[in-house]
Design a protein around this nucleic acid. Structure first.
Lengths: 240, 240
DNA sequence: CAAAATTTGCTGAACATTCATTCAATATAG
DNA sequence: CTATATTGAATGAATGTTCAGCAAATTTTG
């Protein structure tokens, strides 16, 4: 049973990347960021139930009492960490969507691809997400933030599915298909996180693309390197 | 923000359903079962990190030291609980598969429907599953059992996808589509567990069926009450 | 059949450990 | 010098584990 290597991005805060102060004293914000990164490390390495204040402090190479100074309590540190990951994920898919241009099929393809981007989708982050999922049901505070794919995301997916439907005349239910798609993405994350089977970022993206291909056969075609968009006659090119 | 009610099946072991002894003394196996059910309750109610031996014992209405007597340690109790859920899930889908008859499309439909059966898919069980998922990465012991949809399940899905492909000449990659399907099912479970959005067992099943419908348009058609199988000419009816 | 002996299941107080939190003392920056 | 950041030992609460003893069931003995 071989384990698939999923490249980890190194913690970015550790190395002094600019004029920020490291070592003896640093600003409130820099320390908070540093502690949040250490928290993600600990969640990924030891899981939620075994993540301790001491481990976080050690990971940040600071003293034991430091977390209570910057965040007041363990609970608040964890909420801040979850909020951080939530914000990062939101910014990431919104950015991918912005940059995708005006074509609906391209936009959907970009959203799906964004989910498997190294910056978001790596062992460390996925493990941290999953750690929170495991606690979300019993903690109201986590519940709202644990579903990274929130209402805005879900609405956008529904909208894109609707548009593709009217463009090419599919006969699916846009709401149901959008739900299926986002559940699929989350499910693939879960597989990646578990890391037992032969599922890598690449095969996961292939599976997601296989879905797009079967659901929107008039919009995409299969190519060597993933998905290719097909031109739809119904969309006149107004821009040029 | 309204929460969707997902009906809970009551704990089955509590009521004396047969000649088993309750009250003062009971056999080893009955007690173990009872404690496992109490563990699932606790996991669902409080999450993994706040499930304590005391809570499990209280839930089973037994004394504090009881768990260490029947299982030796908390760790072993949790492994036994996970194993129990794994076995139950396995038996459930295998049974659904057996009863589905000889038609490949029916078999696939039955497997998908089985995932949203009350017996398997209820708030209590899903919450317990998710609690384990959150710890799986950092605990080798959990890893093998946490993926309820195991290799055997995955292979069966791949096989069914292959057959449908040859029956009707789709052009997807069976492996990738099977991975997408099982990830979709797991992702829907995750949504159901979170219970924030308007996702009920019924809408989840609809989303899964929407997937089947788009992926295998020559095998299924949409009906009021879910999915209907279409006859494929390529499958001669040898039986009658 | 009845009493005694033994096995088996169970209890709950005591113990040890882990861990979040507090805070007085200390070091650094401005 | 003053305000701010940091340290690390002390504290206390929570909790998993142990175990001596008790009670019900079962077997043995008279």
């Amino acid at each position: 049973m071989k384990t698939i290597e999923m490249e980890d991005e190194p913690t970015e805060v550790d190395r002094p990347s600019g004029p920020e102060k490291r070592g003896r004293k640093a600003s409130k914000e820099v320390r908070r960021q540093q502690l949040i990164e250490a928290t993600i490390d600990s969640l990924a390495k030891r899981g939620y139930s075994e993540t301790t204040m001491a481990d976080v402090a050690d990971g940040a190479k600071l003293s034991r009492g430091i977390v209570n100074f910057h965040f007041e309590s363990k609970e608040k540190l964890l909420v801040a960490t979850l909020q951080y990951m939530y914000d990062e994920y939101s910014a990431h898919w919104r950015n991918a969507y912005e940059k995708a241009g005006d074509n609906t099929a391209d936009q959907l393809k970009a959203l799906v691809a964004a989910d498997f981007d190294r910056a978001i989708c790596n062992k460390r982050k996925l493990a941290a997400w999953c750690a929170f999922w495991g606690e979300a049901k019993s903690r109201p505070t986590y519940q709202a933030l644990s579903g990274a794919r929130d209402t805005a995301y879900q609405n956008l997916l529904s909208d894109l599915c609707s548009r593709l439907k009217t463009e090419a005349g599919y006969d699916f239910e846009p709401q149901a298909l959008a739900l299926a798609l986002s559940a699929l993405l989350e499910g693939l994350w879960l597989r990646l996180m578990m890391g037992l089977e032969d599922v890598s970022r690449e095969t996961a993206l292939q599976a997601a693309n296989a879905f797009l291909l079967t659901a929107f056969p008039k919009h995409y075609t299969s190519e060597k390197n993933g998905l290719q968009r097909l031109d739809t006659r119904e969309a006149p090119l107004l821009m040029k």
